[in-house]
């Protein structure tokens, strides 16, 4: 990064949970990246770094290219220009086991096949699903599935069909599948959409624990920042066709948010010190 965007440079002190890992190279580096899909420029001038061990939201209005950014990171969509490094490698590359390093929770997890598989088997696929040729499941693999299920509080419905689970339960199973390979980076696409408030709260707490206890770097696409504020370190925001990054203090800004969502946003700080934002 030769000429960092002024808004994109996060002073180290702002990235609280990464403070211990200050020496670690950034989990994600974007250097003047642009993406074209179907002949249309989705966004450009993406220059930012995301520190290892942080929780970062990807925000922007509908159609601004949030999911596209995730697909770039996963190596599913090529960039038109610029350079991307994910955990030190080009997207989709790295050592043979490299992809075990990244967990992914898509939107609308398991919509069609959920009747034909148990939650436990779906999680196991996160560990064995990319291995060719038939092999027995080892005791260690079984234990890791149990641990992943326990980590997301999914043990009690692990033997049920995925189709029988509620939205919140499915989301947990999807997260268990993403973390069972012990990734260093977990990417989630709108994990809170269509969840009720209590389930939103529980999933956010879960993401916080993954980050704090296991040191996992977390990237989460969101259209509502409020439920995530307690765990966020910063955000990538897609504004006017460009991708920027700012620490949380820079993102929770009435002018920026109002511009971003195209409607007047007010940031409220409660006497207890809690932040939230609302459309006025």
């Amino acid at each position: 990064m030769s000429t960092p965007d002024p808004t994109a440079t996060a002073p180290a002190a702002d990235v609280t949970s990464a403070a211990g890992a200050a020496a670690a190279p950034p989990a994600l580096v974007f250097d003047d990246v642009s993406v074209v899909r179907g002949g249309r420029l989705v966004w450009s001038e993406g220059t930012f770094e995301i520190p290892t061990g942080s929780v970062t939201a990807i925000i922007g209005s509908n159609g601004s290219g949030k999911t596209t950014m995730i697909k770039v990171i996963l190596g599913l969509v090529p960039t038109a220009s610029g350079r991307v490094r994910v955990l030190g490698h080009a997207p989709g590359e790295g050592p043979s086991s490299g992809r075990d390093d990244i967990g992914y929770v898509p939107q609308d997890y398991t919509s069609t096949a959920g009747d034909a598989i148990r939650a436990r088997d779906a999680v196991l696929l996160g560990l064995t699903g990319s291995r060719w040729a038939f092999s027995r499941i080892t005791r260690e693999q079984r234990e890791r599935v149990d641990q992943a299920l326990a980590a997301v509080d999914a043990t009690e419905f692990a033997n049920r069909r995925v189709s029988q689970l509620s939205g919140g339960q499915r989301q947990r199973v999807a997260i268990a599948q993403a973390i069972v390979s012990r990734p260093r980076l977990v990417v989630l696409d709108e994990p809170l959409a269509s969840l009720d408030l209590r389930n939103q709260r529980e999933i956010v707490d879960l993401l916080g624990r993954l980050n704090k206890d296991l040191g996992v770097t977390i990237l989460v696409v969101a259209h509502d920042l409020n439920p995530l504020l307690s765990v966020l370190d910063g955000a990538v925001y897609l504004l006017d066709g460009h991708a920027h990054h700012a620490p949380l203090s820079g993102v929770v800004d009435e002018d920026l948010l109002s511009h971003l969502y195209g409607t007047r946003i007010e940031v409220v700080r409660t006497p207890q010190g809690e932040l939230f934002m609302r459309s006025v």
Binding site: D100, Y104, Y109, A122, L125, G129, S130, A133, F134
Partner: peptide
């Protein structure tokens, strides 16, 4: 089927995740 069993199952159940994991 023995050769492709797990990747095929992964791709059938969660095609997006499977693709992201290199299947």
């Amino acid at each position: 089927v023995a050769l492709i069993y797990r990747p095929l199952l992964f791709a059938s159940v969660d095609s997006e995740v499977a693709e992201a994991r290199g299947v």
